[in-house]
Design a binder for these strands. Sequence first.
DNA 1: AGCACGCCGACT
DNA 2: GTCGGCGTGCTC
Length: 807
Amino acid sequence: MYATVVIDIPDLKHQGFDYQIPEPYRSTIQVGSRVLVPLTNRLVQGYVVDIHETTEVGKIRPIHEVLDIIPSLSQEMIQLGKWMSEYYVSQLFRTYQILLPAALKTKMEEYIIIGNKELSDLTLIEIEIMDWIRPRQPVSIKKLLGSFPGNEKIIKELIQSGVLELQREFKDKTAKKKIPYLKSRLTLEQLLLEIAALPKQAIKQKMVLEYFISREIDEVSLSQLLSELKITRSTIQLLVKKGNFTIIEKEEYRDPYKDRVFQDKKITLTPMQDQVLRKIIDSMENQRTVPFLLHGITGSGKTEIYLSAIQHALEQGKDSILLVPEISLTPQMVERFKGRFGELVAVMHSRMSQGERYDEWRRIQKGNAKIVVGARSAIFAPFRNLGLIIIDEEHESSYKQEEHPKYHARDIAIWRAKYHHATLVLGSATPSMESYYQASKQNYQLLELPERVFGSQLPTVHIVDMREQLRMGNRSMFSQMLQEKIEEKLEKKEQIVLFLNRRGYSTFVMCRSCGYVMKCPHCDISLTYHHSDRSLRCHYCGYTEHQPKLCPECHSPYIRYFGTGTQKVEEELTKRFPGVRVIRMDVDTTSKKGAHERLLNVFKNEQADILLGTQMIAKGLDFPKVTLVGVISADSLLRLPDFRSAERTFQLLTQVSGRAGRHQLPGDVIIQTYDPEHYSIEHASHHDYNSFFRKELEQRNLLHYPPFTRMILIQFSHENLMLAMKAIERFARELKGMLKISAEVLGPVAAPIPKIKDRYRFQCVVKYNDEYFIVNKAIHRAIQVVNESIKDRKILIQVDVDPYMLL
DNA sequence: AGCACGCCGACT
DNA sequence: GTCGGCGTGCTC
């Protein structure tokens, strides 16, 4: 018997190697099992994708170990991985890895022990190394090298000669948390008899037996028993000694929401919500697979519909996935679902530990959880009987993975929904152009919720023309109106949210004498000034240098800071409104674990007046006291050289506006811009999605952009500029030759940021109308040609199907 | 990726 | 003459 095993070989075409299955493993191994297999002189992890009786491979080696009793990858996941790897042009192994929780990646640990060979003529340094190791062995190779820097070669030789021995071990990170339980072997009647037989003074033992009887249980966690009955282990020891009880180890799932109390609020749907729900339920019952696009304005009560639809799936005995953007996966959000469905809900997001995520994954795999609420990767939840997939805020960019394989959760959802005949619901207040276009072509069924549930008014949106402000002599970042409104709200003790999508202090730093702009030495991008530590930082690679006193070019002391970032706004606010309490939220203030929630809580408890932040504050926040939302500069979004910038501006402005006046208090929204007539700002101010959609669709059609034309972005990078150029030129030539009629190949050109982290970047864009598989095949082929003709392993090729941005 | 094999320069 | 540089190719 032989198994085809997919392993980590940096070859796009690698589909697995054949290994012989040793006798003892033949009954346990299955397609989807993780295995350890030999590869030249080491062991590597792999995934079994096929099992067969014969093989054509001459040199067959045996599988070293089967790591799973239950295969990690289901038949569905094996197929999904294959499809993804081809579709997204990514290594098969990497694709399988992202389908599984990170804890299942076995990591090889290497350590050193003293070997069984002895040499008499050791050099001084060798003796020193041996003496260092002897009391510490086994010692990790990293630690050893760290203690003897520069002696890599000597250590390698000692290993080669056998004086030292290199040991390798695979460490699973799946260590399950075990807790002791006391288990009874007796029936209820036997327990009663046992009580009668106990000597009078055995009060504690009697209590334990009664505990089992009164609860009609046969096992209980030891710690619970000890604390509830106020007894000690000695009582337990006596019971165990008599043979009727045993201590067993039981797996405990780490429940991150263990100590929270959740409320189950009764849901009554409005007639409109109910109508939408009926359609979804009807589709579920008839296993129809046309996806729904649920277009519901903010506050229209989409979540209630999700809850009810999931309830229905549950009643049908089916599993559900609810995807939400990472950022809106807040405790309040989780609470609602936990409150409604309790233990049946598994939660998955990036702030959980590897162990926690693995536990949730296993609860799903074992069928103990029927619902998953999670961010992007939760789309891979190992359900076997999916009935419903919901993607909330489907337009969000966070559903696109930016590392290989660069998948979109929406694509995966469509694939899985087809596989399971499950119903797919895409929900949004501002649907993506792609999805709304699909709905307009009847490929998706459109459902609409045009009204707010509580009938609360949408806020009044004021557009402020900043050019006019400038003409009036106002050169500050706050327009007169914004300033007045802030004062007004501060006086009324209401709260304010200010939005700016630039962190740092100023966006670029220039010498006024010679015009030199401070740039990152590793990336072709200007550095941002951070006032807190007076540093210049690169937002792409993290490079940091101290604020220069003199221009590095001409040594002039006249250095100016241009542009506005969140730090500068914060400074201005405290200057202009003395005593104001400002919370700044951006990558710089929320990088620490829990900081995000902590800051929001401060604002929620009204210990601050103004919440100032970047994108991250735009979503899902709901504070009743917020009555003013200000967008400092809508232009910074609009001016990005990207085909989606208008769409993103509209979505963001709509979303930000939704933050104001969600409850009784009426809300104001102020949008500051130098381009007040722009259609995305205009339509957002009137909460008019349909007009925006029509206008933007026209533009996209005109310029041959999605959703009419589909695109693929291919980037090559290399530390050597000439080599990178040569490679992509070869690639483009090959591709153009193959795709003369079915697609248009643009470029190659330097990438919008031509150098990141010391690598030169070039790109091609392929535009086509349909028949992706032809384009896909051509790309695979062209990459192969480049790899065969230019043999340089450091060429990095990245393929992005349906890129979110062209940057 | 990791590793071996193998063909060229600079050293004991 | 050998040691070791890293270019090339393979791993079931």
